[in-house]
Design a protein around this nucleic acid. Structure first.
Lengths: 234, 234
DNA sequence: ACCTGAACACCGTTCAAGT
DNA sequence: ACCTGAACACCGTTCAAGT
């Protein structure tokens, strides 16, 4: 048995309180995230978990947005950069990596929402960026197009995951919303909105997977075929 | 002079309290939005402005997310669906409408953030959808591709505006973030991240306008050239 | 049916004061 | 330099009770 506190009156028994560090704070935040979701990852709750006051956290973290970005950095370690299909076409491998990224964000859609505002810039994000650029390069996509395109690939995947965050909040509410949308589109006035009326079914068609896959392939085609404007020689 | 209250003791003098309606609530919300930003559009503040308690609002609005969607619907009335350039190529007109949509959202980037989660589905949103579909049709884009593509065009524009919401919060913080990103990309280890290292400049190049325009043209190219998967005959 | 006071259960951030 | 108690100024949502 390890020796307990020698002074049981001045210090109550509890697990040794570890020194605060940025890494420790982020690690605890990720724990709360996994156990209870992002909504519970608040400065106050985090402080409580770390056995201190919320003010103490501000020594290591600028604000809540920055905290969220740091959490995402951490989570991005789970993205599968290689994908099962090694021998496949570069496009399919690219879609694979992007799908993995999307799937990781789907486990915490509220975090995707945050990521649109405060982009991560840590190690795992860099690794992802590098991999995407390498695959675009392998496909012969001109570097300038790849550089601009990679941004949009990630933005699109992030936004898709963020859109799922209502659904995550309440299954019932999400169904309601979907029903309302379906009804609205089908009952649209064909005189005033002929296109919407005619395409109502197609606007709602496809499984999420089909649409996500089409989304990525469409983006890759667009990126590969759209030259970046020439900078004016100065 | 209009007659004042006949019973100054039982009812204090104040502008006649209008009956609560959903439209009235949304209109007041938009007023606060324009005057003080979305952060101030809270249920409590809105109730105060309407001279009632917050609980009363829940008769007309399901929750804060739904309120935000309704506000956006309203704001979408400002999107210019025709664009100056009438004679132009359909692509240029399409880019024009999308740019107008983006610009409207740029005036309230926090709302763009909300829009990713609770999509609007009101009159103004329908009008926008109709216009985008009509332009894609004019360009000979197959209907199925247009139907899936229009979603992504709007998503991309919305996400771009949402990304600006940090910047809106604090000019100084935004500059800091940009500097941090620039430094990170330029100081990246060329051995570990050869692509990122080589493309650092290009990843950061271009004005926001140039990138937005390229973004839309790239999406249009992708949408026009990527067939939707055939549904299996059932 | 519509409206509301009051309560429940929280927030982020700052700052002066301590160690 | 690092840490913190306490305060400031708020939140969304629910519910029992009124009209």
């Amino acid at each position: 048995m390890p020796p307990r506190s020698r002074n049981p009156i001045s210090r109550r028994e509890r697990p040794a309180k570890p020194a605060l560090t940025r890494a420790g704070i982020v690690a605890t935040a990720v724990e709360i995230l996994r156990a209870e979701g992002l909504a519970k990852v608040t400065m106050r709750r985090l402080a409580q978990e770390l056995d201190t006051g919320p003010a103490s956290l501000y020594v290591y973290v600028a604000n809540t947005d920055e905290l969220h970005a740091a959490i995402l950095d951490d989570l991005l370690g789970e993205v599968d950069l290689e994908t099962a299909a090694r021998g496949d076409d570069w496009r399919e491998r690219l879609v694979g990596v992007l799908s993995s990224y999307t799937l990781v964000l789907f486990t915490h859609p509220e975090l995707a929402r945050a990521a649109l505002v405060a982009r991560p810039s840590g190690e795992n994000y860099l690794r992802l960026l590098e991999r995407l650029l390498a695959l675009l390069d392998e496909g012969g996509v001109p570097a300038a197009q790849a550089a601009w395109g990679v941004d949009i690939l990630l933005q699109s995947a992030t936004a898709t995951a963020a859109e799922a965050s209502t659904r995550a909040q309440s299954q019932a509410r999400a169904q309601q919303q979907w029903d309302a949308m379906t009804r609205a589109l089908h009952e649209v006035d064909g005189q005033a909105y002929p296109q919407v009326h005619a395409l109502a079914d197609q606007l709602l068609s496809g499984t999420p997977q089909e649409r996500l896959s089409w989304n990525f392939r469409m983006l890759i085609n667009g990126i590969a075929s759209t030259p970046v404007p020439q900078p004016l020689p100065s």
